[in-house]
Amino acid sequence: MKSCVLMAYVPDTASVIKVAAAGNRIEEADIKWIVSPYDEYALEEAIRLKEAKGAPVTVLTYGPERAQQGLRECLARGADAAVHVKGGEGTFGDALAIAKVLAAAVRKSGPFDIIFAGIQGVGSDNALVGAMVAELLDVPHVTGVVKLEIGDGAITAHREIEGGTEVVTAPLPCVVTAQKGLNEPRYPSLKGIMAAKKVAIQAFVPADLGVDEGALAGAGATCRWKALALPPAKSGGVILKGEEDPAAAARELARLLREQAKAI
């Protein structure tokens, strides 16, 4: 049994995001990059599978040079091999283009019995890539998984749906995307960090996989980022003084919720 984890290296969720001069990208200077938190759940599940059934873990990413550091972090946590498809500047945020590159990389590095990914990358938050990779590979997928049992040739997965939990079975191989709650990711060990630097990372460019990245970024693009804007700054809020006439303050609060916030 072998598993694969699709990993995105994304801005730290605590980063202060600024729009770059070009207007359709974020300013990358001063950004600290991290393994996308949902991918940490995916990796943890793969490592647990390795611990339970001896399934070696390959981590795969598509991104610029810096993404190699994310692969090292995954190796430090216990992944066995890493594949880096270098590129992604032109296809940023285009889920189908990214899925095409990743599916080609999975074919090249596989076969794998199970492919894990985060439910979404916290970079552009599309939540499409995992399912698209599965379609391109022509295997089933289960998204947003919070509990997973891996049996012989099939999985049973619990996924969150509105107002409840859906229990799904699927044959292997398949794609599983991890939701918060699936597990508690481990910290890398210092020994793992020191060992990770000795692992050779297999590097490709999309052309090595038979993918024309230029076409995906140009005529074949399914998504273009026209402009980015920061959310409007939060106002200071309104404080209703209710000490003297609580009933009047409550009426005013109800009026504001109904008329201004349109919440009730």
Binding site: Q69, A76, Y187, P188, L190, I193, M194, A196, K197
Partner: peptide, 14 residues
């Protein structure tokens, strides 16, 4: 080095 930063960040996060 990359490893030194990773060691620091791991312990910092913990």
């Amino acid at each position: 080095s990359d490893e030194e930063r990773m060691v620091r960040d791991t312990v910092r996060n913990w």
